[in-house]
């Protein structure tokens, strides 16, 4: 296996590089605009937010907005609640889903096709119609106004992540399984020694997607939590919304910035794990 070869085929010529660069920069006008709009809105005075034509640079810069949001709501409590909640669920979903996905990708059993169809099927029912039965169920467990309805089911895995990991696991060479078998190892050994180490990028991708979903999810916390101090950020932000045009957009956007920065930083620094992870080579001895 020649790792250095990989670089030579991946390199672009100068013209190609320029082309890619130009397209990427042009696209940023579109893709970075929402972030830019949030930043400038978060620094405006409320009376300037709606002025037309839009001012591209706040005048004056109202840095106070950022201190005010921390005075108005327990923002740090929300951040803390979210971090704990997201950390537990992402971990639970990633581990459980990996186990289940391994079974669907690598093990033969009667009924596995039907079960896999059910796993996929659970994604196809619009959540709006299962909301009430689910609430009744968790009410019966006496779990309302706690994170239990959101956290405990995560240990059963997520259909989306199971499906995603299954697709990745299908692409891992079966020879390695055979090798473990010949050495007398069981399925658990295969999973922990072969599949997991080889799927770090896939697992990291799954984790980041689950992270983003949990970080932003509003409806789950909205239905199950009622005590303000327990709110995660997604729900806590709504404290800055009001009906009938009374929403303080500058404060809402400042608070939203606080909510957006952690995932952005995480994405920026963690991408080497999920995007530039190890390469599964095609050479198989």
């Amino acid at each position: 296996m020649f790792r250095s070869v990989r670089v030579s085929y991946g390199e672009l010529g100068a013209a190609g590089k320029f082309f890619v660069y130009a397209i990427l920069l042009l696209g940023l006008l579109l893709f970075a605009f929402p972030l830019y709009w949030m930043i400038i809105t978060s620094l405006k005075e409320l009376g300037d937010v709606h002025r037309m034509p839009m001012s591209w640079i706040p005048n004056p810069f109202k840095w106070d907005n950022y201190s005010q949001i921390f005075d108005d709501v327990p923002l740090l409590t929300y951040v803390w609640n979210t971090v704990i909640y997201v950390a537990i669920t992402v971990f639970a979903v990633a581990i459980s889903s990996a186990l289940v996905a391994y079974a669907f990708a690598r093990l033969k059993a009667r009924g596995s096709g039907v079960l896999f169809a059910i796993v996929l099927g659970t994604m196809m029912i619009p959540p709006q119609v299962t909301l009430i039965p689910q609430y009744l169920l968790f009410n019966q467990f006496n779990w309302i106004d706690s994170y239990l309805p959101l956290v405990v089911p995560a240990f059963g895995g997520s259909a989306f992540i199971i499906f995603l990991l299954r697709q990745f696991f299908l692409g891992i060479s079966k020879d390695l399984d055979e090798a473990v078998k010949i050495d007398g190892g069981g399925y658990a050994t295969t999973f922990f020694r072969i599949i997991l180490p080889l799927s770090i990028p896939a697992l990291a991708t799954a984790a980041i997607l689950e992270f983003m979903y949990r970080w932003n999810d509003l409806i789950g916390p909205l239905i199950y939590l009622s005590t303000g101090d327990k709110y995660p950020l997604s729900l806590g932000l709504s404290n800055f919304t009001a009906a009938y045009a009374a929403t303080p957009w500058n404060l809402l956007m400042a608070a939203s910035m606080v909510a957006v920065i952690p995932p952005l930083l995480l994405f920026f620094f963690a991408q080497k794990y999920f995007i530039q992870g190890i390469v599964i080579t095609g050479s198989k001895g």
Binding site: S96, A103, L107, Q134
Partner: peptide, 17 residues
């Protein structure tokens, strides 16, 4: 082994979803 590995999902399905 198959049933062992998918048991988290099966239990979650029976209890919650």
């Amino acid at each position: 082994a198959f049933w062992m590995f998918i048991s988290p999902w099966v239990i979650g399905f029976i209890l919650f979803s």
